[in-house]
Nucleic acid binder design. Structure first.
Lengths: 140, 140
DNA sequence: TATGCAAATGCAAATTATTTGCAAATATTA
DNA sequence: TAATATTTGCAAATAATTTGCATTTGCATA
Protein backbone atom coordinates (compact mmCIF):
# COMPACT_ATOMS: atom_id res chain seq x y z
CA UNK A 1 0.00 0.00 0.00
CA UNK A 2 1.27 3.50 -0.86
CA UNK A 3 2.26 5.67 2.06
CA UNK A 4 -0.50 8.12 1.12
CA UNK A 5 -3.11 5.44 1.46
CA UNK A 6 -1.62 4.39 4.77
CA UNK A 7 -1.68 7.93 6.05
CA UNK A 8 -5.32 8.39 5.09
CA UNK A 9 -6.25 5.12 6.68
CA UNK A 10 -4.51 5.78 9.95
CA UNK A 11 -5.88 9.31 10.19
CA UNK A 12 -9.42 8.60 9.06
CA UNK A 13 -9.25 11.29 6.38
CA UNK A 14 -10.94 10.49 3.09
CA UNK A 15 -8.74 9.52 0.22
CA UNK A 16 -9.33 12.29 -2.30
CA UNK A 17 -7.52 13.18 -5.48
CA UNK A 18 -6.62 16.61 -4.03
CA UNK A 19 -5.16 15.19 -0.85
CA UNK A 20 -3.15 12.72 -2.85
CA UNK A 21 -1.74 15.50 -5.03
CA UNK A 22 -0.72 17.60 -2.04
CA UNK A 23 0.74 14.56 -0.33
CA UNK A 24 2.81 13.72 -3.38
CA UNK A 25 4.19 17.21 -3.64
CA UNK A 26 5.18 17.13 0.02
CA UNK A 27 6.65 13.68 -0.39
CA UNK A 28 8.94 14.62 -3.21
CA UNK A 29 10.04 17.91 -1.62
CA UNK A 30 13.22 17.57 0.36
CA UNK A 31 12.81 20.90 2.13
CA UNK A 32 9.74 22.48 3.71
CA UNK A 33 7.56 24.39 1.24
CA UNK A 34 4.69 26.83 1.54
CA UNK A 35 1.08 26.60 0.42
CA UNK A 36 1.62 28.81 -2.60
CA UNK A 37 4.45 26.63 -3.87
CA UNK A 38 2.30 23.54 -3.55
CA UNK A 39 -0.54 25.29 -5.33
CA UNK A 40 1.69 26.31 -8.24
CA UNK A 41 3.10 22.82 -8.47
CA UNK A 42 -0.47 21.61 -8.90
CA UNK A 43 -1.76 24.16 -11.41
CA UNK A 44 -2.35 21.40 -13.96
CA UNK A 45 -4.58 19.63 -11.46
CA UNK A 46 -6.52 22.86 -10.87
CA UNK A 47 -6.85 22.48 -7.13
CA UNK A 48 -8.15 25.55 -5.35
CA UNK A 49 -5.67 27.36 -3.13
CA UNK A 50 -8.03 27.31 -0.18
CA UNK A 51 -8.30 23.57 -0.59
CA UNK A 52 -4.54 23.35 -0.39
CA UNK A 53 -4.65 25.29 2.87
CA UNK A 54 -7.42 23.10 4.22
CA UNK A 55 -5.59 19.94 3.29
CA UNK A 56 -2.41 21.16 4.92
CA UNK A 57 -4.34 22.04 8.05
CA UNK A 58 -5.87 18.58 8.18
CA UNK A 59 -2.47 16.97 7.63
CA UNK A 60 -0.96 18.96 10.49
CA UNK A 61 -3.92 18.12 12.71
CA UNK A 62 -3.35 14.43 12.04
CA UNK A 63 0.44 14.65 12.40
CA UNK A 64 0.89 13.71 8.76
CA UNK A 65 2.70 17.00 8.16
CA UNK A 66 4.55 19.57 10.24
CA UNK A 67 3.90 23.29 10.04
CA UNK A 68 6.61 25.80 10.86
CA UNK A 69 7.94 29.23 10.13
CA UNK A 70 11.60 29.96 9.46
CA UNK A 71 13.78 32.96 10.02
CA UNK A 72 12.18 36.34 9.45
CA UNK A 73 9.65 35.00 6.97
CA UNK A 74 6.00 35.25 7.94
CA UNK A 75 4.89 32.51 5.56
CA UNK A 76 4.10 29.09 7.00
CA UNK A 77 6.00 26.17 5.52
CA UNK A 78 5.08 22.50 5.57
CA UNK A 79 6.85 19.19 5.30
CA UNK A 80 5.83 15.57 5.67
CA UNK A 81 6.29 14.30 9.18
CA UNK A 82 9.00 11.82 8.37
CA UNK A 83 10.44 10.30 11.45
CA UNK A 84 13.94 11.52 10.72
CA UNK A 85 15.07 14.54 12.62
CA UNK A 86 16.63 17.25 10.44
CA UNK A 87 17.91 20.80 10.55
CA UNK A 88 18.21 23.47 7.90
CA UNK A 89 20.60 26.02 6.55
CA UNK A 90 18.91 29.17 5.21
CA UNK A 91 20.50 31.66 2.86
CA UNK A 92 19.97 35.20 4.12
CA UNK A 93 19.98 36.54 0.58
CA UNK A 94 18.22 34.14 -1.76
CA UNK A 95 16.23 32.45 1.01
CA UNK A 96 17.05 29.01 -0.29
CA UNK A 97 16.83 26.21 2.24
CA UNK A 98 19.18 23.26 2.43
CA UNK A 99 18.84 20.29 4.75
CA UNK A 100 21.77 19.45 7.01
CA UNK A 101 22.53 15.82 7.60
CA UNK A 102 23.02 14.75 11.17
CA UNK A 103 22.10 16.49 14.39
CA UNK A 104 24.80 17.97 16.61
CA UNK A 105 22.47 18.22 19.59
CA UNK A 106 21.54 14.73 20.62
CA UNK A 107 23.93 14.44 23.54
CA UNK A 108 23.42 18.05 24.53
CA UNK A 109 19.66 17.72 24.74
CA UNK A 110 20.01 14.66 26.89
CA UNK A 111 22.31 16.47 29.31
CA UNK A 112 20.04 19.48 29.32
CA UNK A 113 17.12 17.32 30.31
CA UNK A 114 19.08 16.16 33.35
CA UNK A 115 20.25 19.56 34.47
CA UNK A 116 16.98 21.44 33.94
CA UNK A 117 14.50 18.65 34.73
CA UNK A 118 12.54 19.57 31.65
CA UNK A 119 11.08 16.67 29.72
CA UNK A 120 12.48 17.60 26.34
CA UNK A 121 10.13 16.89 23.44
CA UNK A 122 11.80 18.35 20.40
CA UNK A 123 14.14 21.03 19.19
CA UNK A 124 14.60 23.14 16.13
CA UNK A 125 17.88 24.54 14.91
CA UNK A 126 17.96 27.21 12.25
CA UNK A 127 21.26 28.32 10.83
CA UNK A 128 21.42 31.42 8.69
CA UNK A 129 24.24 32.31 6.36
CA UNK A 130 25.11 33.25 2.82
CA UNK A 131 25.20 30.42 0.33
CA UNK A 132 28.21 29.94 -1.94
CA UNK A 133 26.27 31.12 -4.98
CA UNK A 134 25.28 34.42 -3.37
CA UNK A 135 28.83 34.90 -2.12
CA UNK A 136 30.02 34.43 -5.68
CA UNK A 137 27.64 37.14 -6.89
CA UNK A 138 29.41 39.58 -4.58
CA UNK A 139 32.86 38.51 -5.69
CA UNK A 140 32.24 39.64 -9.26
CA UNK B 1 23.34 59.04 27.61
CA UNK B 2 20.30 56.73 27.39
CA UNK B 3 20.72 53.62 25.31
CA UNK B 4 18.00 54.84 22.95
CA UNK B 5 19.95 57.96 22.21
CA UNK B 6 23.07 55.88 21.66
CA UNK B 7 21.26 53.57 19.28
CA UNK B 8 19.94 56.49 17.23
CA UNK B 9 23.34 58.09 17.11
CA UNK B 10 25.15 54.98 16.01
CA UNK B 11 22.56 54.14 13.40
CA UNK B 12 22.00 57.61 12.04
CA UNK B 13 18.25 57.35 12.55
CA UNK B 14 16.53 60.49 13.74
CA UNK B 15 15.53 60.63 17.35
CA UNK B 16 11.74 60.84 17.25
CA UNK B 17 9.15 60.48 19.96
CA UNK B 18 7.65 57.47 18.18
CA UNK B 19 10.96 55.66 17.88
CA UNK B 20 11.68 56.30 21.52
CA UNK B 21 8.31 54.85 22.53
CA UNK B 22 8.83 51.69 20.49
CA UNK B 23 12.36 51.36 21.77
CA UNK B 24 11.20 51.64 25.36
CA UNK B 25 8.56 48.98 24.90
CA UNK B 26 11.14 46.64 23.39
CA UNK B 27 13.59 47.45 26.13
CA UNK B 28 11.29 46.56 28.95
CA UNK B 29 9.99 43.38 27.28
CA UNK B 30 11.91 40.31 28.36
CA UNK B 31 10.56 38.12 25.57
CA UNK B 32 10.08 38.91 21.89
CA UNK B 33 6.79 40.69 21.05
CA UNK B 34 4.86 41.47 17.90
CA UNK B 35 3.92 44.76 16.24
CA UNK B 36 0.32 44.64 17.43
CA UNK B 37 1.41 44.23 21.05
CA UNK B 38 3.71 47.20 20.78
CA UNK B 39 0.94 49.23 19.16
CA UNK B 40 -1.50 48.41 21.95
CA UNK B 41 1.08 49.20 24.58
CA UNK B 42 1.34 52.63 22.98
CA UNK B 43 -2.34 53.47 22.48
CA UNK B 44 -2.02 56.41 24.83
CA UNK B 45 0.72 57.82 22.61
CA UNK B 46 -1.48 57.38 19.52
CA UNK B 47 1.22 56.12 17.23
CA UNK B 48 0.00 54.75 13.94
CA UNK B 49 0.34 51.00 13.46
CA UNK B 50 2.10 51.42 10.14
CA UNK B 51 4.59 53.68 11.87
CA UNK B 52 5.25 50.91 14.37
CA UNK B 53 5.94 48.56 11.47
CA UNK B 54 8.19 51.08 9.80
CA UNK B 55 10.11 51.72 12.97
CA UNK B 56 10.57 48.02 13.59
CA UNK B 57 11.79 47.62 10.03
CA UNK B 58 14.30 50.41 10.47
CA UNK B 59 15.47 48.94 13.78
CA UNK B 60 16.01 45.54 12.18
CA UNK B 61 17.80 47.17 9.24
CA UNK B 62 20.16 48.90 11.65
CA UNK B 63 20.62 45.82 13.84
CA UNK B 64 18.97 47.57 16.76
CA UNK B 65 16.33 44.87 16.89
CA UNK B 66 15.96 41.29 15.72
CA UNK B 67 12.96 40.00 13.80
CA UNK B 68 11.91 36.37 14.02
CA UNK B 69 9.00 33.98 13.90
CA UNK B 70 8.46 31.22 16.42
CA UNK B 71 6.90 27.77 16.07
CA UNK B 72 3.81 27.62 13.86
CA UNK B 73 2.87 31.25 14.29
CA UNK B 74 2.87 33.43 11.19
CA UNK B 75 3.25 36.69 13.10
CA UNK B 76 6.67 38.32 13.23
CA UNK B 77 8.10 39.02 16.67
CA UNK B 78 10.78 41.51 17.62
CA UNK B 79 13.27 41.97 20.42
CA UNK B 80 16.11 44.38 21.09
CA UNK B 81 19.41 43.13 19.77
CA UNK B 82 21.17 42.75 23.06
CA UNK B 83 24.59 41.42 22.16
CA UNK B 84 24.42 38.26 24.20
CA UNK B 85 23.82 35.11 22.20
CA UNK B 86 21.19 33.00 23.90
CA UNK B 87 18.92 30.07 23.38
CA UNK B 88 15.56 29.33 24.89
CA UNK B 89 13.70 26.46 26.41
CA UNK B 90 9.97 26.71 25.76
CA UNK B 91 7.36 24.83 27.76
CA UNK B 92 4.88 23.14 25.43
CA UNK B 93 2.13 23.48 28.00
CA UNK B 94 2.42 26.79 29.83
CA UNK B 95 4.46 28.47 27.06
CA UNK B 96 6.92 29.85 29.55
CA UNK B 97 10.31 30.72 28.12
CA UNK B 98 13.57 30.20 29.96
CA UNK B 99 16.99 31.25 28.73
CA UNK B 100 19.71 28.62 28.54
CA UNK B 101 23.20 29.63 29.50
CA UNK B 102 25.97 28.75 27.11
CA UNK B 103 25.77 27.71 23.49
CA UNK B 104 26.51 24.12 22.47
CA UNK B 105 26.93 25.02 18.81
CA UNK B 106 29.97 27.22 18.49
CA UNK B 107 32.37 24.57 17.27
CA UNK B 108 29.72 22.88 15.18
CA UNK B 109 28.85 26.04 13.31
CA UNK B 110 32.47 26.66 12.55
CA UNK B 111 32.89 23.16 11.12
CA UNK B 112 29.68 23.52 9.16
CA UNK B 113 30.96 26.67 7.56
CA UNK B 114 33.97 24.74 6.27
CA UNK B 115 32.07 21.77 4.94
CA UNK B 116 29.22 23.68 3.28
CA UNK B 117 31.08 26.83 2.22
CA UNK B 118 28.24 28.90 3.60
CA UNK B 119 29.26 32.09 5.34
CA UNK B 120 27.39 31.45 8.58
CA UNK B 121 25.84 34.54 10.10
CA UNK B 122 23.77 33.34 13.00
CA UNK B 123 21.78 30.47 14.37
CA UNK B 124 18.73 29.95 16.46
CA UNK B 125 17.97 26.97 18.65
CA UNK B 126 14.49 26.40 20.00
CA UNK B 127 14.04 23.58 22.47
CA UNK B 128 10.56 22.50 23.42
CA UNK B 129 9.69 20.41 26.44
CA UNK B 130 7.57 20.23 29.53
CA UNK B 131 8.75 22.26 32.47
CA UNK B 132 9.07 20.67 35.92
CA UNK B 133 6.03 22.53 37.20
CA UNK B 134 3.77 21.26 34.41
CA UNK B 135 5.14 17.75 34.89
CA UNK B 136 4.22 17.99 38.57
CA UNK B 137 0.65 18.94 37.66
CA UNK B 138 0.35 15.62 35.81
CA UNK B 139 1.78 13.65 38.67
CA UNK B 140 -1.10 14.57 40.93
C1' DT C 1 17.39 81.46 16.45
C1' DA C 2 15.45 80.94 11.91
C1' DT C 3 15.34 78.18 7.75
C1' DG C 4 15.79 74.43 4.36
C1' DC C 5 15.51 69.81 3.39
C1' DA C 6 15.73 65.02 3.92
C1' DA C 7 13.70 61.81 6.84
C1' DA C 8 9.73 60.38 9.40
C1' DT C 9 4.81 60.12 10.27
C1' DG C 10 -0.35 59.59 9.67
C1' DC C 11 -3.87 58.06 7.04
C1' DA C 12 -6.06 55.41 3.73
C1' DA C 13 -5.71 52.15 0.47
C1' DA C 14 -3.12 48.11 -1.42
C1' DT C 15 -1.00 43.62 -0.91
C1' DT C 16 -0.07 39.15 0.83
C1' DA C 17 -1.13 35.12 3.50
C1' DT C 18 -4.70 32.71 5.30
C1' DT C 19 -9.51 31.58 6.66
C1' DT C 20 -14.48 31.05 6.20
C1' DG C 21 -19.52 30.48 4.49
C1' DC C 22 -22.11 28.09 1.58
C1' DA C 23 -23.70 25.34 -2.23
C1' DA C 24 -22.28 21.58 -5.08
C1' DA C 25 -19.53 17.41 -5.59
C1' DT C 26 -17.54 13.13 -3.83
C1' DA C 27 -15.84 9.15 -0.87
C1' DT C 28 -17.31 5.69 2.13
C1' DT C 29 -20.37 2.54 4.23
C1' DA C 30 -24.35 -0.05 4.53
C1' DT D 1 -26.78 2.04 -5.50
C1' DA D 2 -28.62 5.24 -2.06
C1' DA D 3 -27.71 7.85 2.18
C1' DT D 4 -24.80 10.83 4.44
C1' DA D 5 -20.99 13.01 6.30
C1' DT D 6 -16.86 14.98 4.33
C1' DT D 7 -14.57 17.55 1.11
C1' DT D 8 -14.08 20.90 -2.48
C1' DG D 9 -14.56 25.26 -5.30
C1' DC D 10 -15.56 29.81 -5.36
C1' DA D 11 -16.02 34.23 -3.66
C1' DA D 12 -15.75 37.01 0.00
C1' DA D 13 -13.75 37.94 4.69
C1' DT D 14 -9.98 38.55 7.80
C1' DA D 15 -5.28 39.20 9.57
C1' DA D 16 -0.69 40.82 9.01
C1' DT D 17 2.05 43.79 6.68
C1' DT D 18 3.32 47.28 3.17
C1' DT D 19 2.93 51.38 0.32
C1' DG D 20 1.71 56.14 -1.79
C1' DC D 21 1.28 60.54 -0.78
C1' DA D 22 0.53 64.77 1.70
C1' DT D 23 2.03 66.77 5.95
C1' DT D 24 5.07 67.22 9.82
C1' DT D 25 9.38 67.06 12.26
C1' DG D 26 14.40 66.61 13.51
C1' DC D 27 18.66 68.37 12.60
C1' DA D 28 22.37 70.74 10.16
C1' DT D 29 23.86 75.18 9.11
C1' DA D 30 23.41 79.88 8.05
Amino acid sequence: MGSFQQAMQRSGLKRTKQRECVYNVLEKADVPINAEQIYKELLSESINLSTVYRILESFVEKDIAIKATLGQSVTAIYELNRQEHKHHLICAECHSIVAISGCPLEQYVEDLSKTTHYQILEHKLEITGICPRCQAKHGK
